[in-house]
Design a binder for these strands. Structure first.
Lengths: 146, 146
DNA sequence: GGTCTGTTCTATAAAAGCTAGAACAGACCG
DNA sequence: CGGTCTGTTCTAGCTTTTATAGAACAGACC
């Protein structure tokens, strides 16, 4: 699990870590039960303070995506296949979705284009379709600059 | 233009104002050229300081959605029909979209359901679509894989 | 002239955000 | 046992954000 982050970004470091892990879970790169590096280890790899990593892990734990144990460290608790989301998640999420999509529409992106972007993002989460046998165009992503 | 905001929300007031205006523009409730109430007037209506409203307006101006004039006040500059977004908008927007959709997928919402939510939100932006250009049935495509 | 408008200063106070140092306790291994 | 890893907790400093507020200015409008 190598993640690259931009220290010059306006997005806080701990949020970048969280976002990357969420995307890794969504794409299946991190399956349920996968173990994440320890906060101190990841902090050393990224050259940041381990509290920052801890904050990201703790946020993911509050969101129900991680299970943190003193003995086994951080494990992925949720998965795309785990089941439906906890009650209360969808409402809050759709509110944010509404605001985000409204932004695009207001800026002149027409509805089919917006929906196309959504579909493209979702497709990027499944680089290798289970039922597909034709195109195995691997998504180029492996980038580690940290 | 009546907007309700939640003073107890974690979302800052000025951001709530911005979000509501963006959604109003996306839904066509506020068309290009529409005039918004003055900062002082809206502040009185909402029971808040006019600087807070000014901050929301200024943010929308920076985003290119509002044109603020000393004589005509705040006018909606952009619209769903104005044209394609400014260069640089899409990339940053798709990054946020990716993170948001990843969140839903990681929480167990399957791809068709996510796409369905997106389509539902878009549909809610067009309660009456006389100039439909295929946005209605655009949601009908199921999952993208295979 | 009076009143509205946006604009621009300064200012303050509270809150949140972010990173960090230090220490503690449990777990593991040689 | 001793050393080292782990997560956890407490404290702390610093910056940024948020919201409010006052004051003043200039253009527009009736």
């Amino acid at each position: 699990m190598i993640l690259s982050l931009d220290l010059d970004s306006e997005v806080p470091i701990y949020l970048q870590i969280r976002d990357r892990i969420v995307e890794a879970i969504a794409s299946g790169e991190l399956a349920e039960g996968s173990s994440l590096p320890s906060t101190r280890q990841l902090a050393v790899d990224l050259g940041i303070n381990f509290h920052t990593v801890n904050k990201a892990y703790d946020l993911l734990r509050q969101e129900g995506l991680l299970r943190i144990n003193r003995k086994s460290g951080a494990l992925v608790q949720r998965d795309a296949r785990t089941g439906p989301p906890e009650p209360g998640f969808t409402d809050e999420w759709e509110t944010r979705l509404r605001t985000l999509l409204a932004e695009a529409v207001a800026h002149g992106v027409d509805h089919p284009a917006v929906l196309g972007s959504c579909a493209a993002v979702l497709t990027s989460f499944t680089p290798t379709a289970p039922t597909a046998q034709g195109a195995d165009h691997g998504a180029e992503q492996g980038d580690s600059a940290s």
